[in-house]
Computed example of a mutant assay.
Amino acid sequence: MDQFQNIERLSLNQITTEKWNIREAVDGCARAGIPWIGLWRHKIKELGLPGSKRLLRDAGLKVSSLCRGGMFPAATATERQKRLDDNRRAVEEAAELGTDVLVLVCGPAPDRDIGAARKMVEESIGELVPYAKSYGVKLGIEPLHPMYAAERCVIVTMEEANTLAEQYQPDEVGVVVDVFHVWWDRNLYKQISRAKDRILGFHVSDWIVPTPDLLMGRGMMGDGVIELRKIRKAVEAAGYDGPIEVEIFNHDIWNTPGDQVLELMKERYLEHC
């Protein structure tokens, strides 16, 4: 029998219920019996770190990851330092909230030199690793779909993410596999296998056809074309048995009552993941 007859690994990535504040998201997970939550820093800021931590503890909710660190490239040395300092704060927040995974969305180029931006990403991760390690936090490099290279992330393939991560120990730097961003890659399964014991997170949603919007067009699992179960099994074969986050940017879903979203999320997770 497939282990996916229950939701013990299911995590609500907060962005899926963007209109909920952290208290509403925590209460919603409790009502739905969802044991994990992936947190976003702007949501934590609304209530504050101590209040958010207390809320999570009282609900018995486990934190799968904190999003996001990264956004490293910048036009000036001063701005790069500011961004690195913000990443150090993100590391501290992750540790305080009880997760050992900080998701890195590495950032776009500040000009036309994408090669230089990738070098900035590499150097910044190198500077951040010792600090993160001192807090027991792992850095999860999340490659984004190439359509995001100009605005969000110059690391666009699993191969690039693996090459960066392999400069460090598996308990320092790994990769986050988000199906929306990597499903199209002909080398995906080879690169998932290459990431053995370095996968720090697994995010699911779906790719809708036709795609309604580059940012806000993710679908609920089963509404698109991604081979979700095949990718999940490959990730598990590479050693990942941690929480599985549902991360969906979609205005229609955001405008749906959160409790309905969570019930549909559970149903589709069991059916398609």
Results as ranks from 00 to 15, higher is better:
residue 26 V to Q: 00
residue 36 W to G: 01
residue 144 L to Y: 10
residue 266 K to E: 03
residue 166 E to H: 14
residue 240 Y to H: 02
residue 129 V to G: 06
residue 42 H to T: 14
residue 241 D to I: 09
residue 180 F to G: 09
residue 73 P to M: 06
residue 218 R to Q: 09
residue 199 I to N: 03
residue 208 I to Y: 07
residue 226 I to W: 06
residue 84 L to D: 05
residue 143 P to F: 08
residue 88 R to W: 08
residue 169 Q to W: 10
residue 8 E to I: 14
residue 92 E to G: 05
residue 66 L to Y: 01
residue 69 G to N: 04
residue 116 A to N: 13
residue 248 I to D: 03
residue 163 T to L: 11
residue 174 G to K: 02
residue 225 V to M: 08
residue 91 V to K: 03
residue 24 E to W: 08
residue 225 V to W: 06
residue 194 R to W: 07
residue 169 Q to K: 15
residue 141 I to N: 03
residue 260 Q to C: 15
residue 239 G to T: 06
residue 115 G to R: 12
residue 259 D to I: 09
residue 205 S to V: 04
residue 127 E to F: 10
residue 175 V to F: 03
residue 164 L to G: 04
residue 47 L to V: 11
residue 151 E to I: 15
residue 131 Y to P: 07
residue 271 E to Q: 12
residue 36 W to I: 03
residue 68 R to H: 14
residue 66 L to F: 01
residue 191 Q to K: 11
residue 15 I to K: 03
residue 186 R to L: 15
residue 93 E to G: 04
residue 39 L to D: 00
residue 215 L to Y: 12
residue 183 W to D: 15
residue 195 A to S: 07
residue 227 E to W: 07
residue 207 W to D: 15
residue 129 V to T: 10
residue 81 Q to M: 11
residue 162 N to S: 13
residue 189 Y to D: 02
residue 63 V to R: 00
residue 175 V to Q: 03
residue 102 L to G: 02
residue 102 L to D: 02
residue 15 I to C: 05
residue 125 I to R: 04
residue 86 D to L: 07
residue 67 C to V: 09
residue 103 V to S: 00
residue 55 L to F: 00
residue 146 P to D: 04
residue 79 E to I: 13
residue 191 Q to N: 14
residue 48 G to F: 04
residue 120 M to R: 10
residue 230 K to T: 13
residue 236 E to G: 07
residue 168 Y to Q: 06
residue 118 R to Y: 08
residue 157 T to P: 14
residue 78 T to A: 15
residue 270 L to Q: 07
residue 268 R to W: 01
residue 59 A to P: 00
residue 265 M to D: 01
residue 159 E to Y: 09
residue 253 I to D: 02
residue 52 S to C: 08
residue 94 A to I: 00
residue 42 H to P: 14
residue 245 E to T: 12
residue 97 L to Q: 03
residue 12 L to E: 02
residue 255 N to K: 14
residue 160 E to H: 05
residue 43 K to N: 05
residue 144 L to F: 12
residue 178 D to V: 03
residue 209 V to Y: 08
residue 241 D to Y: 10
residue 116 A to E: 11
residue 20 W to V: 02
residue 248 I to E: 00
residue 106 C to A: 14
residue 136 G to Y: 04
residue 137 V to D: 02
residue 257 P to E: 10
residue 128 L to W: 03
residue 227 E to V: 05
residue 199 I to W: 05
residue 184 W to M: 13
residue 90 A to Y: 01
residue 238 A to G: 12
residue 2 D to R: 14
residue 269 Y to M: 05
residue 6 N to W: 09
residue 257 P to D: 11
residue 245 E to Q: 13
residue 37 I to A: 02
residue 105 V to E: 08
residue 197 D to S: 10
residue 90 A to T: 05
residue 261 V to W: 01
residue 151 E to L: 14
residue 37 I to S: 00
residue 144 L to H: 13
residue 201 G to D: 04
residue 103 V to I: 09
residue 198 R to N: 04
residue 8 E to H: 13
residue 169 Q to R: 15
residue 226 I to Q: 06
residue 145 H to L: 11
residue 221 M to V: 11
residue 129 V to M: 10
residue 71 M to H: 14
residue 214 L to N: 13
residue 247 E to R: 03
residue 102 L to F: 02
residue 264 L to F: 14
residue 133 K to A: 08
